[in-house]
Amino acid sequence: MSNTDIVKRMYAAKGDMNVIRSVIAPDAQWDVTEGFPHGGVYNGLDSIVNDFFSFFRDFDEFWAEGDEFWEVDDKVIALGRYQGKAKATGDRFTSRFVHIYTLRNDKITRLQQTADTVQISRALGKN
């Protein structure tokens, strides 16, 4: 399985924590843009799953779709879109993102994320 295939598997999981846990390394780091729900830096799989991904509770639907992928050495760069529906407002949104993944031994060890946070904030009723 290529590194790109592993990243695509995570996107296809659409929030299934069993799949997400299977592709992220125990010592991974998630660096999420400020302004994104639960934006910040998370160290370790448990913190990523329990602290960061808990933002799913604010949405009736939320998923990431990768549109373009580039793989160079241990990095995968993905351009794509978040899509979803906020619980509080019922508003749907589409928000563009760039994800830069680092992988080691068939596991994601780091995510650097940037995204159009305005669209998500509006759907949550925060703008």
Rank of each mutant, 00 (worst) to 15 (best):
A25F: 06
G84R: 01
R104F: 11
D46S: 00
Y11Q: 07
M10R: 09
N43D: 12
I6C: 12
G15M: 03
A78L: 05
K75D: 04
Q113L: 13
D60Q: 11
F55C: 02
H38Q: 06
I100P: 08
V41F: 08
K75E: 04
A28L: 07
A25W: 06
E34A: 15
L103R: 04
T109A: 07
M17K: 10
F62D: 00
D58Y: 12
G40D: 00
A12S: 08
G44R: 08
D5V: 05
D5L: 07
M10K: 09
D106E: 15
Y82W: 12
R9Q: 13
E65H: 12
N43I: 13
D51A: 01
R110V: 14
W30G: 14
G84V: 02
G84F: 00
I120Q: 04
V19E: 09
F97A: 06
R110N: 15
E34H: 13
K85S: 11
A25E: 05
F53T: 04
L111W: 03
M10Y: 06
R104Q: 15
Y42Q: 14
G125Y: 01
F56A: 05
D51Q: 05
R57G: 02
A78V: 11
D51S: 04
R92E: 15
D5C: 10
K85F: 11
N127R: 13
E71I: 03
R104M: 11
F56G: 03
A115G: 09
F52I: 09
K85E: 14
G44M: 08
D67A: 04
K14V: 10
S95R: 00
R21H: 04
I6N: 07
E71H: 01
R96M: 05
F62W: 01
L111K: 12
V49C: 10
K87L: 11
R9M: 13
N50K: 15
L124R: 14
S2N: 14
D51R: 03
D27K: 09
K87S: 05
R21S: 09
R57V: 08
F53S: 04
Y101I: 05
N50A: 02
N105S: 15
S47G: 08
D74S: 14
Q29D: 07
